[in-house]
């Protein structure tokens, strides 16, 4: 019995780890390749979660819905809506210093949160959307559906990993890194800096939307409190910084390591006496905040530093 409990604990750990890995890969496109600071990850994640939830749920009088679409279409919708949101923000801000993009992305995350809470015709307000379907619901039952979902999440992580790695090595990715490292010389070489940055930001936001959609299907329930905006955004940043910005393997590794530390410490702190248990969550946040400072100052390269692929030339 202990063992099955442990098994399903690991399954849930890896599912959420996979969702964080997606967020991390997305942030790696924006920050690791493009050098863009996105402080509103939770906003794009939330918009994806709501889009996918609304597209896939059966009709309900309490919120917009009744489309009953299959889950993959919900996820595609999540990617599109999150991508368009990201496009709107990026269009306005990329020509300015990256700090402005950070402020605007925090702003958009805040506005989206207000929309989720206030527009109850759309999202059922703070009561949330329930009965969100999971993929393979008809072939799996009970806890086995967790295992099936684990596979589903990691297949998507793998697909995104392959896609982002191809992007990184492609001429597009090389241009992007050139812009990141020296904007002036890249634009002198005739590259349209703004266009590349907007594209990067949109791709990243779309993947964040997919991650949000997956979380909605995993929990089967979605309300505005599902994510603590600051904590989600912040954890993803720490994950990417610790794992190695610019390196996709590092992004996944960082996500898994930090997520494991974050959830395993929760088990220990929950066993503390109640007055300490509530405080310990603040201690954990404090330590993660300090960890980011240490990483920024001492290990900026992360666990797996960025290693540009060698240039391959076609043989004559």
């Amino acid at each position: 019995m202990e063992l099955t409990g442990l098994f399903f604990y690991i399954v849930s750990l890896l599912i959420l780890g996979g969702i964080y890995a997606l967020l991390c890969l997305a942030l790696n496109v924006q920050w690791g390749m493009g050098g863009l600071f996105n402080a509103g990850i939770a906003g794009f994640y939330g918009v994806g979660a709501y889009t996918s939830a609304i597209l896939t749920t059966a009709a309900s009088g309490r919120h917009l819905g009744g489309f009953s679409m299959p889950v993959p279409i919900g996820l595609v919708g999540a990617a599109i809506v999150a991508g368009v949101t990201g496009w709107a923000v990026a269009r306005i801000c990329v020509r300015l210093k990256s700090d402005y993009l950070a402020m605007a992305s925090i702003g958009i995350a805040e506005i989206l949160r207000l929309v989720f809470v206030n527009e109850s015709w759309l999202t059922n307000g703070s009561l949330g959307v329930s009965r969100i379907p999971r993929p393979f619901a008809d072939v799996t039952t009970g806890r086995m559906s967790d295992v099936a979902f684990l596979g589903f999440v990691w297949v998507i992580v793998l697909l995104v990993y392959v896609a982002t790695t191809r992007l990184y090595e492609s001429p597009w990715g090389r241009t992007l890194r050139a812009i990141r490292d020296n904007e002036t010389s890249a634009s002198a070489a005739g590259k349209n800096v703004e266009k590349f940055r907007v594209q990067t930001f949109v791709i990243g936001c779309a993947v964040m939307g997919i991650a949000g959609g997956l979380s909605a299907h995993y929990f089967r329930f979605l309300s505005p409190t599902a994510t603590d905006p600051l904590l989600t955004t912040f954890l993803v940043w720490v994950m990417l910084m610790a794992g190695g910005s610019g390196n996709n393997k590092g992004a996944i590794l960082g996500a898994l390591c930090i997520w494991t530390i974050w959830s395993v410490t929760e088990i220990f702190t929950n066993r503390l006496p109640p007055e300490w248990a509530t405080r310990s969550s603040f201690i954990r946040m404090l330590l993660v905040g300090l960890l980011l400072q240490v990483v920024l100052q001492r290990f900026r390269a992360g666990l797996l530093p960025e290693k540009p692929a060698p240039m391959k030339f076609r043989k004559e």
């Binding site: 950070a102 600051l230 912040f234 603040f282 980011l292």
Partner: peptide, 25 residues
Amino acid sequence: TIYTVISSFGIALVFRSLIQLVWGS
């Protein structure tokens, strides 16, 4: 400077968790 922005983002969380730790939430 973007690294300092990221750092200040973390410091915001550090300040807040210290406040919650000392004075409760």
